[in-house]
């Protein structure tokens, strides 16, 4: 992967400005490069705030719903590795109950059960 882009994603992950989430979503999760999408999803999970977690859980074709299994699985792994899972569980519950897309709901349910099993 491009060295500069890698550094930008790392910088945006640690950035306190909430605008960084928008940049990661706009340029990272929509990138045609699998590696960039994977790194961006992991960065958004590691941020561990409501807005960043929402991007990788409720959006079709992003994060856990990515078409690339590598990207989806590495996002799930990153979620499982979180120290504080309270926010993620809240968003997963909301997605299971309220999301209109079946596929997104099913994926959220799978991740939720994985989280329950891993605890």
């Amino acid at each position: 992967m491009n060295n500069k882009i890698e550094k930008i994603i790392e910088a945006l992950e640690k950035h306190e400005d909430l605008e960084s989430i928008n940049v990661l979503e706009e340029l990272g999760t929509n990138s045609p490069d699998n590696e960039i999408r994977e790194m961006t999803s992991r960065a958004l999970v590691r941020k561990n705030i409501h807005d960043s977690l929402k991007v990788v859980i409720i959006n079709q074709g992003k994060g856990i719903n990515d078409l690339s299994p590598t990207v989806a699985m590495s996002t799930v792994n990153e979620i499982l590795a979180l120290d504080d899972k309270s926010e993620v569980i809240k968003i997963l519950d909301d997605t299971i109950n309220l999301n209109s897309i079946d596929e997104v709901r099913e994926n959220a349910m799978s991740v939720k059960s994985l989280l329950t099993l891993s605890e």
């Binding site: 500069k4 882009i5 930008i8 945006l12 950035h15 605008e19 940049v23 340029l27």
Partner: peptide, 25 residues
């Protein structure tokens, strides 16, 4: 530049750099 990319840099600068890099690629 690569040296100036860090979490202290403004987000819009980081975004502009990313876009420029995408264009280069």
């Amino acid at each position: 530049s690569l040296k100036h990319i860090n979490e202290k840099a403004p987000v819009h600068d980081l975004k502009a750099t990313w876009i420029a890099e995408n264009e280069k690629i």
